[in-house]
Design a protein around this nucleic acid. Structure first.
Length: 294
DNA sequence: AGTTAAACCTGGTTGC
DNA sequence: TGCAACCAGGTTTAAC
């Protein structure tokens, strides 16, 4: 599921509703991708900060006292943050976070609910049928295991400090197909299988095109298409193929306006020829043979 | 070192 | 209707 837009929609829909909340209890369901790395009871009594995002990961600061609940900017570190910590959350393929403000009745874990944190402001629940997701305790973003999971990630496509020259040069030094490079997350994070196909269609670049064979002009075009697609998808609440919901249970709508993803055989919106489906790196790629020549 | 397949899981859809 | 095969938003790990 969750590519950058869905993760960002999740973060935005939680807004700051958890900020300042004190954790009252934590329940775990079946095992996720990695163990929590901490006794659930150890989280009780900590105070939540504002949720942040890096790539497809969410970071929920959990601090010892209520004073430092201001947003944690990635890279920033203070002695207070160092001695507290937080949860690094990944939604995997089928995960979604739900937040309920009602504190009235005790909430039991459903069959696919594998992490639940009760707080003084509401209950945060991770639902993830396939359990490729993760909730991992880390002392800070600059320490293991968080650092290990985040350190190889490429640039944030929607960051105001995005370095487009670096993006171009990183594409030029890789020989893999461009779709593979986008999905790897080593150059740019956030584009998964849906948005990689959509961005390549918009940029009129064949998914099999070798990255280093793109012209500078093509690379820049691709960058702006990736950024546009991600921004538009966020504005539409993300894509809901099956499982994705925002923190309030609402589906996304972007899949309705996807131009090529999951549209094999349908007419290309630009030239009317049928959309092709191929498999790269064990993932489906959708494109138009005419509009995206090799 | 760089590229590709296998693995982690569940459930829905497709085809015989 | 039953059942096997295949497919799905991601990413690590092992194997060439």
């Amino acid at each position: 599921m969750p590519e950058l837009p869905e993760v960002e929609v999740t973060r935005l829909s939680l807004s700051d509703r958890l900020t300042g909340a004190r954790v009252t209890s934590v329940k775990m369901g079946k095992p996720l991708r990695w163990p929590l790395g901490q006794e659930p009871a150890e989280l009780v009594g900590k105070y939540a900060g504002a949720m942040a995002r890096r790539g497809k990961y969410l970071w929920l600061p959990l601090m010892r006292d209520a004073r430092n609940t201001s947003p944690l900017v990635h890279g920033e570190s203070s002695p207070h943050h160092e001695e507290t910590g937080g949860l690094l959350i990944h939604l995997g393929m089928s995960g979604s976070l739900n937040f309920r403000e009602d504190l009235t009745c005790p909430i039991d874990l459903g069959a696919h609910e594998h992490f639940q944190m009760l707080t003084t402001l509401g209950t945060l629940t991770l639902t993830d049928p396939r359990r490729f997701g993760a909730v991992v305790w880390s002392r800070s973003l600059s320490q293991t295991p968080a650092l290990q999971l985040l350190q190889r990630l490429g640039q944030e496509p929607l960051s105001p400090t995005f370095n487009s020259a670096l993006f171009v040069s990183e594409l030029q030094r890789r020989k893999s197909p461009i779709k593979t490079v986008l999905l790897s997350g080593e150059v740019i994070v956030g584009a998964g299988n849906i948005y990689a196909s959509e961005a390549l269609f918009r940029a009129r670049i064949h998914p099999m095109q070798r990255s280093n064979l793109l012209t500078t002009r093509q690379a820049k075009k691709l960058l702006s298409c990736v950024q546009d697609v991600l921004r538009e998808a966020i504005a539409m609440g993300g894509s809901t193929l099956r499982d994705f919901r925002n923190a309030h249970g609402h589906s996304g709508d972007f899949q309705k306006i996807a131009q090529v993803y999951d549209r094999e055989g349908e007419p290309c919106p630009r030239c009317q020829r049928p959309i092709f489906r191929i498999v790269q790196q064990q993932r489906a790629s959708y494109f138009c043979e005419r509009c995206q020549p090799l």
